[in-house]
Design a protein around this nucleic acid. Structure first.
Length: 106
DNA sequence: AGACCCGGACGCG
DNA sequence: CGCGTCCGGGTCT
């Protein structure tokens, strides 16, 4: 468990149910210049439900990846979890951009 | 040191 | 709008 991951998970815990954040947003929260690094940190997903890594989507409102996959059953599961929270997707895109937690640029 | 990784910005068609 | 391309930071080998 690296310090970087701790920061990412901590930031992610601040995301309320029914809302989502972008990788870029999380990257800003943890003061990381690379959103990709964030995704890589989430990839392992240590403590499953506590840290809702499924509330993290891409900046273009696409679903992004899940457990190392950009599509397939994993991603469908992610969509299902989000749907259960009231966050719905269509055509691989988030329907309500308002549900995205906006992170102010530092 | 090199390769890999759940993205992002930018340019082009 | 949908590619294709380069870029970046962090971690693993």
């Amino acid at each position: 468990m690296t310090d970087f991951q701790k920061r990412v998970y901590a930031a992610l815990r601040a995301v309320p149910r029914g809302a989502v954040v972008t990788y870029a947003g999380l990257a800003r929260m943890v003061a990381c210049g690379s959103c990709r690094a964030v995704g890589q940190a989430l990839r392992m997903n240590p403590h499953a439900p506590r840290v809702p890594c499924h509330r993290v989507i891409a900046s273009d409102l696409s679903i992004g990846g899940y457990q190392g996959a950009k599509d397939g059953a994993r991603v469908r599961k992610k969509l299902a979890l989000l749907a259960a929270e009231g966050v719905h997707f269509a055509h691989g895109r988030l329907l309500d951009p308002r549900r995205v937690l906006v992170v102010p640029t530092r």
